[in-house]
Every structure is written in C-alpha cells, then in structure tokens.
Design a binder for these strands. Sequence first.
DNA 1: GAAATCTTGACTAATTTAGTTGGGAAAGTA
DNA 2: TACTTTCCCAACTAAATTAGTCAAGATTTC
Lengths: 161, 161
Amino acid sequence: MKLTTKGRYAVTAMLDLAIHYGEGPITLADIAQRQGISLSYLEQLFSRLRKQALVSSVRGPGGGYSLGKEAREIFIGEVIAAVDENMDTTKCHGAHNCQNNERCLTHDLWSDLSDQIYTYLNNISLQDLMDRKAVREVAERQEHGEVDASVLDQVSSPAGV
Amino acid sequence: MKLTTKGRYAVTAMLDLAIHYGEGPITLADIAQRQGISLSYLEQLFSRLRKQALVSSVRGPGGGYSLGKEAREIFIGEVIAAVDENMDTTKCHGAHNCQNNERCLTHDLWSDLSDQIYTYLNNISLQDLMDRKAVREVAERQEHGEVDASVLDQVSSPAGV
DNA sequence: GAAATCTTGACTAATTTAGTTGGGAAAGTA
DNA sequence: TACTTTCCCAACTAAATTAGTCAAGATTTC
C-alpha cells in the first residue's frame, strides 16, 4: 500500500465523476479543467481505472467516462490500488528467507500494517465522501444565506473553516 | 500524509531499536546489517528522527542510538511524519482560492482523509507492534518446539539463511 | 466525411527516493 | 596524546517514480 499524490489525483477525479453522476458521460477535458490535472496524465490514470472496471467509457462526441459502479460501491482503497499497481513492499516477495528471520519479521509487520490501512480505506466509498462534503457545503451555504450552487465557482471566502 | 518505503525504513529501524531496548545504545551499523538498509541512508533518516526527539544518540565507542521515549509512547504516525517532512498535499496551501471552490473541496477532502489515516497510525505504538509480533513468534516457536526468547538475538548472525 | 472523444505508446522533465562519498566532531581507551 | 569508534553533516550521484508531452490511431455521432 502506497499513499501518494498519484492516488490522490485518482480519487479526486473519481469523486468528480461521482459528483456529476447522472449528467451522462464526463470528458477527461472537463475533469482536467475542474481539478487542475493535466489531461494526458488523467488519460494514463483512467486507462488503469478502466482496466479495473472502476469506470466505463464511451467514445465519440458526447462521450466520456462514467463510474463503473454506484458511488457507494466504489471504495477509496480500490481506486488507489488501481493506479498504484505494484504493492509488493517486501524485498523477499514473501519468500521469508532474506538474510535472517528477524528481517522477514519486519517485512511481515509492514505488510500487516499496510493491509490494515488498505482495509480502512476500503470501508470508505465515494458516496461517503460525497455525503460528508455535501453536508458541509449545504451548511455553509445556509449559514451565508447563499443562492444556488453556481456560487461555488466564485466563492472562496476566508470564512474560517 | 504519505506512505512510502521511506517511512517503512524508518519504522523498521525504530522497531529494531525497540526490540534491542535495554542493551544500551545500538549502532546504526548494526541496524544497517540486520535490516538491510544502507548505513548512510540510515544516517539521513536518523538525523530527522533525532530532531523530533524520537531517538537519542551517544557518540564515541560504545555509543549509538536509543529510543527517545518508551516504546509505548512512540507512534507509527510520528515516525513516518518525521522522515516525510512536507505533508502539504494541497496546491493552494489552505488558501481556499485556487481556481474554484470545487477544487478546494477536494483538497479539503483529501486532507481530511489524510488526517484520518494519520490519526489511525498515531494509535499504533512501537510497543503494539512488538507485542503483536511477539505473540506470533511465540506461537510459531511453540508449534515448532523451539527454544527461548534469546534466540532472537542470535538468529541475526550468520546462523540463519 | 468531419469532428469529438477515447485509446495507446513512446518520449521527456521534474521530483523523490536511495545510496555514496568524504569530511568532520565528540567520546572513550590505551 | 594518539587512536578508534561512533555520530554528524553536506554535497553529490543514481535509480525510480511522478507528472506531463506528443503523436498516432480507433470509435462514435452528426
């Protein structure tokens, strides 16, 4: 298990898809603009996400990407794992015969720890993330007696938070 | 929050210190040999660990490093944070005024997630890790009709494969 | 058939990780 | 004092990963 900006990009992009669910396929160009990620880099990431069936694609005009499953069925851990590929953190690849037994112990230990984080992340779905943020957005909008959702594109108010 | 092999090296080395606690200062050369990490790289890592007071050092012959606190007071999250330094994953550095609010939302979101993982790791102490492994070791040793605890200190020498 | 969009692969640049080198400085020991 | 062992530190190199670019093609819609 690795946790880097690469995984963050993937999760962010997936969340973008989730937010715009129901609007038909979303183009990578849109996501690139909204999330400030390079289009070509997104292409690489989505190539992997697609192979894991986390997204589905439609070509041609009006095409784009959609979530491969319901937002509540897609978990953060899956998304990160999809773009991270090699997770074998141990040098001995589970052979347990590195230079001495003690060393292997720490290998096992780390992979245990890794698994736990992975399990943890696999209990948070995209829907969970959306719900969490949605609540906060609504709360903030109400507090400021704000208008409709389009305000989101202008405001960045230093209202604390 | 980042989770890479660098952090793993740091945790592994700290665990090595914890295991040999009570034997006086442990030299980096010993750790390097036992854990298969380059000595100079360990020096870099320990420089940071020392600045965070996670370890204390003694120079000269018979010198080396010891844990800066009790094993049960040192948490994995601390160790990883110490060697990882920059954890500001957001491009806007909390300014909340990137290109639009939505983008900042995902930033916040990721940092929330990051915090949760960090919190999680900050609930696991070196002692916890030791206990966990100790249990397994004992179980395995008993199953194989093996010797006593001091075995741990010998196996690190050429005896084992 | 033209435009929009995904799909693929090869390439480059920047950053981070990992390791090296070489020189100290402090402390113990003879 | 001389010598050894160890930490300490800074610059350098090498390898890997991340991030991004470029160019060609495949599908679909219009």
